[in-house]
Nucleic acid binder design. Structure first.
Lengths: 197, 197
DNA sequence: CGCCTACTTGGCATTAACTGCCAGGAAGTC
DNA sequence: GACTTCCTGGCAGTTAATGCCAAGTAGGCG
């Protein structure tokens, strides 16, 4: 399985080292107060190479969202056809949860994101990208829902709401230091919105 | 009423001139391609002063959101106490709509925001700010809602969902060049999520 | 009107996030 | 061992943004 060229292997090592340094410094002094120069220095890499690994400073925190988006989309697609849009999205969310970082790291990152306005905004913006990719998947499943409305509007609204609830649940979860189950919080959010289920 | 010192009057004029120049240039060459230096030059002002009027480049596009957020909060607060949280938020949204720019300008700005990632992020950031300020207002109104859940979670989820629907409706509205009524789109989004009403 | 204070303006220097370019070195191929 | 390919680091340059200071202008007062 390690049929990787040495280049790729050492790249993984470098990426991990940079990421560890960055997250540590962000936690210690805050995101805005930490400069790229400092991260590069402490990670033992040139500033120029750091920008080759991570195109922007924000990617140091919310860079791997890309892969998670793909996983989410595939999971939702593969849910049985008779499942409602809401349940299919909920199943996808569940898979993301288990596939995510070790919970301690995820908690640290979540706190950083929710405490730093510019990061939070960037994070949501990246998420909007998967959101757009999920809309057609949900539209294909809308036979079960109420007819008479424009399916484009319906599916966009449903996906946006689900992500709003995921976001809210994650924020509450980070605020409680991870002591409350994230999936439970998500269900509470959705119940508050939809009033049943 | 024009009991304003000449300083404030000429400031209003300058702000408007800068804003007009900026929006025109953004529309002509795109947001990223337009530099602060160019805007300042064409508006006949120094770069330094431009940054005193608008703290950031993004504020040139979504700067007056601050005032709208205040208006939104006050409007929601002043709705009759027996009105549900959903209806109070809907009333606030309606007021924002009428208090907004002339529709042509609003459409242009919306498209610019949705098409420019960094702008979109900044817009989301400002929205998150109002969101946080609205949560206590909504929590105070939750006596009408289903009891048994944590009100903090409930109110956060409701506010987040409403904004998700506002965002979705606005995106659809901009995509249809403003030909569909924004309030109607919002109602459709909320109906798709809540299933009745 | 002349003076003083309050506030604004513009220029200069500086920082931080990026980007392009180019030389040099290590990894993989034959 | 030569050759190609790819990565790395340094250097210069751009852009947004901030602090500082000197110069100018509005407004109030004698």
């Amino acid at each position: 399985m390690s049929m990787t060229t040495l280049w790729e292997r050492s790249r993984q090592v470098a990426v991990q080292a940079i990421l560890d340094t960055a997250v540590r410094l962000f936690a210690e002094q805050g995101y805005e107060q930490t400069t790229i120069a400092q991260i590069a220095r402490e990670a033992g890499i040139s500033q120029r190479s750091l920008f080759r690994y991570f195109g922007t400073k924000e990617d140091l925190v919310c860079g791997d969202q890309e892969a998670l988006g793909e996983l989410l989309k595939r999971t939702v697609e593969q849910q049985p056809a008779e499942m409602s849009a809401w349940d299919a999205l909920r199943a996808g969310f569940e898979v993301i949860l288990t596939a995510n970082h070790p919970p301690e790291r995820a908690l640290e990152l979540s706190r950083l994101i929710f405490d730093t306005p510019s990061l939070h905004a960037r994070y949501i913006e990246k998420r909007l990208h998967w959101q757009a990719e999920l809309v057609p998947v949900i539209r294909a499943r809308l036979g079960n829902g109420p007819s008479g409305a424009v399916p484009e509007t319906q599916s966009k609204a449903i996906v946006a709401t689900v992500f709003a609830c995921i976001d809210t649940a994650t924020e509450l979860w980070a605020g409680h230091d991870g002591r409350i189950d994230l999936a439970d919080l998500y269900d509470q959010c959705l119940a508050a919105v939809r009033g049943h289920d």
